[in-house]
């Protein structure tokens, strides 16, 4: 039996969350004697980059370079992964929680007759059934969930395990799967994507601004801070509703859920719907001029003050320690 890990890539690089999924697969195998950890990647990407999945814990990478397999052709991805899963004789599929990962995992649960648990935050307990801990109620609680089927799919949340960096580069085996044309019925006509930007759901540090920033013209200040920290930028819902910032930066219950090591919230009141998207952060820093802002209750560190004064000073202080 082996563990198959589905890895996503963007702009020529394996996504960090997918490397974490590989490390999760390795830790799972070490814990329960799960056999080989094999990764599968689809679509055009350099095999030199794919070898790196070995460093995160994979013993082999299977790659179908068919350039029709772009991210987003969900049915074709599900078909391809199911074929590889059966070929390698896997009994568990691991993948990173993401919009593509979710869509592929859900279809695979049916194709493989596998029990699927999403938002997994830890390795399973297998002493008494196969028990997985997952995050529910948008991070407000956890559920110990038992999977009753032989085949299992785990969609892993960011930071569930540490990323391994001590493996060796692994061999990449090229395959050419035959995928039914009907699975390409959804066509992607164009994409509109910021390149080179740190992706919000993957970021280790996030700097977010709220309505307290007063207007889009003031975001330069937050971008400077983000640049100094190597952070992605986010915002509260009203900020993207008014159009100060693009929708994909909106963090919270109805937006992106982030799980960075550091979340810096500037001029955000800390409404419960915003907190729901950030409560998996390791450390939270809040900068707000109102000492009563609810966000301070969820914060590790805080500064009560005017963002327009504090942010430039903070950026300078960060520069100074370089």
């Amino acid at each position: 039996m082996s563990i198959l890990v589905y890895i996503e890539h963007a702009e020529g690089a394996i996504k960090k969350t997918s490397l974490e999924a590989v490390s999760y697969g390795k830790a799972l195998s070490d814990k329960i004697g799960g056999g080989d950890v094999i990764a599968v990647a689809l679509g055009a990407i350099d095999s030199g980059e794919l070898k790196k999945a070995g460093i995160a814990g994979a013993s082999k990478i299977i790659h179908d370079a068919n350039d029709k397999l772009t991210a987003g052709v969900i049915q074709a991805h599900a078909d391809a992964v199911a074929q590889v899963y059966n070929q390698v004789g896997a009994n568990t599929l691991v993948l990173a929680k993401s919009s593509l990962g979710d869509a592929v995992a859900a279809r695979l649960a049916i194709k493989l007759n596998a029990g699927l648990v999403s938002n997994v935050v830890d390795l399973p307990e297998t002493s008494d059934g196969y028990k997985v801990k997952r995050s529910i109620y948008t991070g407000k609680a956890f559920a110990e969930t038992v999977i009753n089927t032989d085949h299992k799919i785990l969609a892993v949340k960011k930071n569930a395990v540490d990323l391994l960096t001590d493996g060796a580069e692994a061999d990449v085996e090229s395959v050419s799967l035959s995928i039914d044309e009907a699975n390409f019925a959804t066509s992607i006509t164009s994409t509109d994507k910021a390149t080179g930007e740190i992706l919000l759901p993957e970021a280790d540090i996030v700097v977010s601004g709220g309505r307290g920033m007063k207007g889009p013209e003031n975001w330069g200040m937050l971008e400077d801070l983000a640049k100094e920290l190597g952070a992605a930028t986010g915002c509260s819902k009203p900020v993207s509703d008014i159009g100060w910032r693009p929708h994909h930066e909106h963090v919270g219950q109805t937006g992106v859920k982030v799980a960075p090591t550091l979340y810096v919230a500037v001029g955000i009141s800390g409404a419960i719907q915003h907190l729901a998207g950030v409560n998996s952060s390791k450390y939270i820093v809040v900068i707000n001029k109102d000492p009563e802002a609810p966000f301070f209750k969820a914060a590790d560190y805080g500064i009560v003050g005017d963002a327009f004064e504090v942010i430039p000073k903070l950026t300078e202080a960060l520069k100074a320690i370089k």
Binding site: S99, T189, T191, D192, K193, A194, L199, H248
Partner: peptide, 8 residues
């Protein structure tokens, strides 16, 4: 999609 939009 992460970082943008895809039209389909």
């Amino acid at each position: 999609i992460e970082g943008g939009k895809e039209y389909l």
